[in-house]
């Protein structure tokens, strides 16, 4: 019951954040919304594990927690340097001219 209410709340939150990701005026708003969406998906998968009575699905939530980060970092890298191969150093920054 509690888990069901939490799941419903998470679904509403996901819808709102997704609308921000679609509407968001700047690219950063979109990136922020997608990152937040990922966190909510982790919570949703964990909650659904309890809802269906099979909490071993947490393996996937764990994987999301690891992988969502990589996607966000790649986007930021691309925003900042317009290139994925530059090192995140002062040197790389100077070379990319930003």
């Amino acid at each position: 019951m509690m888990i069901a209410a939490a799941t419903a709340g998470l679904l509403v939150a996901m819808l709102i954040v997704l609308l921000r990701a679609i509407a968001g005026p700047s690219l950063y708003d979109r990136a922020l919304a997608v990152n937040s969406f990922g966190t909510k998906i982790v919570l949703l998968i964990a909650a659904m594990g309890f809802l269906t009575g099979r909490p071993e699905f947490l393996d996937i939530a764990l994987l999301y927690a690891l992988v969502n980060f990589i996607g966000t970092i790649a986007m930021l890298k691309f925003f900042r340097y317009r290139h994925l191969g530059v090192a995140s150093t002062a040197k790389g920054k100077a070379e990319s001219g930003l």
């Binding site: 990152n35 939530a61 927690a65 690891l66 980060f69 966000t72 930021l76």
Partner: peptide, 26 residues
Amino acid sequence: KLLFVLLLILLTSPTATHALANAAYT
């Protein structure tokens, strides 16, 4: 496993937010 999820997101999420704000400002 839940504890690991919690620790990992508490580690990665502020980092991603920091990098995002940093990129936006730069």
